[in-house]
Design a protein around this nucleic acid. Sequence first.
DNA 1: ATGAAAGCGCTAACAC
DNA 2: GTGTTAGCGCTTTCAT
Lengths: 347, 347
Amino acid sequence: MSSKATTIADVAARAGVSVPTVSRVLTGSARVSQAKKDAVEAAIAELNFRPSAAARMLASRRSQVIAIVAGDTSRYGYAETIRGVEEAARAQGYTVMITVVESQDDDEVARAISATLAQSVAGIVVLKFDAPGVAVLRQLPPDVPVVALSGVRDVGTPQAVLDETRAAEELTSFLLGLGHATVHHVRVPPSRREDGRTTGWRRALRKAGAPVPVPLDATWEPRSGREIGHALATDPSVTAVFCGNDEIAMGVIRGLNDAGQRVPEDVSVVGFDDHPLAELWSPPLTTARQDFAGLGRRGFQLLLDVLGGSTERLYSSERPEVVHRESAAEPRPRAAVREARSVPAGA
Amino acid sequence: MSSKATTIADVAARAGVSVPTVSRVLTGSARVSQAKKDAVEAAIAELNFRPSAAARMLASRRSQVIAIVAGDTSRYGYAETIRGVEEAARAQGYTVMITVVESQDDDEVARAISATLAQSVAGIVVLKFDAPGVAVLRQLPPDVPVVALSGVRDVGTPQAVLDETRAAEELTSFLLGLGHATVHHVRVPPSRREDGRTTGWRRALRKAGAPVPVPLDATWEPRSGREIGHALATDPSVTAVFCGNDEIAMGVIRGLNDAGQRVPEDVSVVGFDDHPLAELWSPPLTTARQDFAGLGRRGFQLLLDVLGGSTERLYSSERPEVVHRESAAEPRPRAAVREARSVPAGA
DNA sequence: ATGAAAGCGCTAACAC
DNA sequence: GTGTTAGCGCTTTCAT
């Protein structure tokens, strides 16, 4: 696709050597005399030659391309994770292609897998953050080098995890320790029946003997949190809320504010992720910091280990750190609820 | 990389036909009798055969892969644009690979271009949002199918644009129309000497005969806006601020608040992009809505036109729409400035 | 150390 | 319609 179709044969001719010799200097697979090496390199530069990755893959049956399979690419955690994988891959000379799986529908999952495998990738990193990711992992042929990235440890596939269960438990316990009778929970769409964040929250409540309220479901849209905030405002028993992520927490706080409730004076709200805007919010969000880019980097490293034939139990776990800011406080008698202002039409 | 190395020859043998016939049903390049077609499809399914994209590209000299070249992948505008390109590409059966260019440094730009071109891509979409993007565009060989995505119209390369100059001018004029003597400007790192947003702002001020303050420079980090907000708070002549993007606007508002200034009562602040959190911020942000995903989709469509050999002047422009919310108001005598609280250490 | 020959898995002519 | 014959641009034996 570059200039004309400058091939390795052109380079060989120009340098006065054989084709395999050019290949040797290209790949460094065997020693070549300095003289020929220089000649080849000069010819390559003059001809502005670029080897064809396709021909290379075909002949060598090896590939320097990895695929990232994800249910989304632009939401905060996904985008950061992808950035981490790409960064680490690039540093090792790998190219990254990306496959999006829209749903856990069989056809869609099969389509995504086919599209990915057709590209002769060296390996695959799947973001197991949601149902599509889980489905892909389950349907992938067993002999493909793959690593999963997620929030909960699992058996089987090599994986890098951000242990959200422990962090959620810690965050919930912190709220309970402040004196709240219980902690309500607003969750984002879970990857399976229950996310680690929800499990951790439940575990903390159980351990403390606190009642376990029914979790409320938000979508990925921050504004869905706002509506839930309106609802939460009408329930005086709600004094602390643990949200599935910071963006939902911001929405919930906004909804609570619409209804005249202050955070943290009337209701404490904590998020998850430590989104870049969490520290700038009013009030600054207490949350758990997730190093998504780091997760991506660890994931790629693991993939490299798999590719290297490592036989170890491939696994890397890290625990998000709770960041204490100002959105959580001791419970106090709540202010009177006022009618939630409806969301402006053009908003 | 899939199962073993099931090839088209295995399929042919199993189906009792020749290799090209299998190829024909695979590509639909020629009619094949229904009987053989069925046999081939059955064999493909039984063998779980997946054609090798590498072999295909090599033999046909065509590719179903496009590359997105970008200076960043996770920031809001970038991530959304990438999402749009990927979505449109996937809908047409294309696979997307992504190349990140870290800087405008010659070596880095050359590395990115080489990595991209080596993959035998059908075409390239470059995000000309920053200096690295501009540099890549300039150094790309002239015969590569490419389209640029940006905020300012340019000559040369086919491109899809989001006309930020006009939108910035409109936003600034709106502020001036409210009665502000001038509008200060906080810009994000520009793609060249000056971004369209800055140009539009300047143009509006000139047209109105308003003084043109020196623009302030933020980084891409929202918190850099906060520090600028602190500085702005000490200058009583500042009554309206136009920020390069919403995240910086949020930081500026926060900084202003730290110093006891209210928005919009004391200072009006407007952003750019209509970030998903802009409507949830306090106060909700007046801004210009940028349809980045749409830009990405239009960009891919343009690339398809280029690939189709279209000889038209390939160009697609759209103008961001100003969204009026609550962060801008008429100027009023400002409240006394109080010492800006320093940013919390752990924040 | 270097060249000749033989493919990698597929598509593209070209016959029939 | 369908099979035969040639490659695509590289890497890989295998000689030398």
